[in-house]
């Protein structure tokens, strides 16, 4: 039963990792941009959530109503103002610029909030749990997982059944020809980054409710997100959920064997899958 419990907890944790991964995958899919600052943007969203809850006395989940639009707007501005200028045939400039952005965000958060760990207070939600067939499941992890599934389903639907998604796919296929169709790629990229950071905002707030955070943890979240994307298969939206769950389960099972092995077990699972299936488990089928 303890093992079943570890697997179930890992699955729920995987929902959070899938949220880390979804925004990363979206951006890579639409504009081939690897956003090194993604983890720090998650942490930034957590701090924005913290400030909103403290200043306005809001519940963290209600704070999403403010943090999500804020991050989306920041994403659009960041893309149009900075990142679009770095995109081209050379993949190095966007890597360098997002790396720089990562350093800037970390330092700004240090200045503004100090290095002390913080946490958002979600009240009873943090400790509430339900029993299910001998397992005790936290309401918060369950909620996180449900939100992740809903967001990924929403992204999938947006991608394949809306004009916006059609524009994302067209620009991803061929930027010049998409431009001939009246799509301004700079605007489309801006919208993609806005959507990515909206998802990141949810991920950040849920992270900040679940665990304590400080300005330095972005890098680790970036790695988890990357691993989930690559396990699931680049360009596959549902694959990011599978990737997140596999990573989460590997970590909780690893921790069950030895508490010190949690993170390592995740990395090992990632490497094993990469060795066996270099394109991930569910590469895009086109």
């Amino acid at each position: 039963m303890e093992w079943v419990n570890a697997i179930v907890q890992g699955t729920l944790l995987g929902g959070l990792y899938a949220l880390f991964a979804a925004g990363l995958s979206l951006i890579f899919g639409v504009m081939r941009l690897v956003n090194i600052a993604h983890g720090d943007l998650i942490v930034l969203a957590a701090y924005l959530g913290l400030t909103t809850t403290i200043m306005l006395g809001m519940h963290p989940l209600a704070a999403l109503l403010i943090v999500v639009p804020l991050m989306a707007a920041a994403g659009y501005g960041l893309q149009r103002g900075v990142l679009n200028q770095t995109l081209g045939d050379d993949i190095l400039p966007p890597l360098l610029v997002t790396f720089g952005l990562s350093v800037i965000i970390q330092n700004a958060l240090l200045e503004a909030y100090s290095a002390d760990p913080q946490k958002m207070d979600a009240g009873v939600l943090e400790t509430a749990s339900i029993s299910l067939g001998g397992l005790t499941l936290g309401v918060l992890p369950l909620l996180t997982f449900a939100v992740a599934v809903a967001i990924i389903a929403g992204l999938q639907w947006t991608f394949y059944h809306t004009a916006l998604g059609r524009a994302f796919r067209a620009v991803s296929d061929n930027q010049d020809i998409a431009q001939l169709m009246g799509l301004n790629r700079r605007h489309v990229f801006g919208l993609a980054m806005a959507l990515s950071l909206a998802v990141t905002a949810v991920a950040g707030v849920l992270l900040g409710v679940r665990t304590s955070f400080d300005p330095s943890i972005g890098g680790g979240r970036l790695i988890f997100g990357f691993e989930a994307v690559i396990i699931g298969g680049l360009g596959n939206i549902w694959g990011t959920l599978a990737g997140g769950v596999i990573l989460g389960v590997a970590q909780t099972v690893g921790a069950k064997i030895d508490p010190g092995w949690q993170i390592l077990a995740g990395h090992i699972a990632f490497l094993v899958i990469l060795a066996v299936r270099p394109n991930g488990l569910f590469p895009r089928m086109t």
Partner: peptide
């Protein structure tokens, strides 16, 4: 130069997007 990720119908619809 069709968009490989788009269906035949979507390729046409996107042309009308202007």
């Amino acid at each position: 130069q069709l968009f490989p990720s788009l269906s035949v119908e979507e390729n046409l619809i996107i042309g009308g997007q202007v």
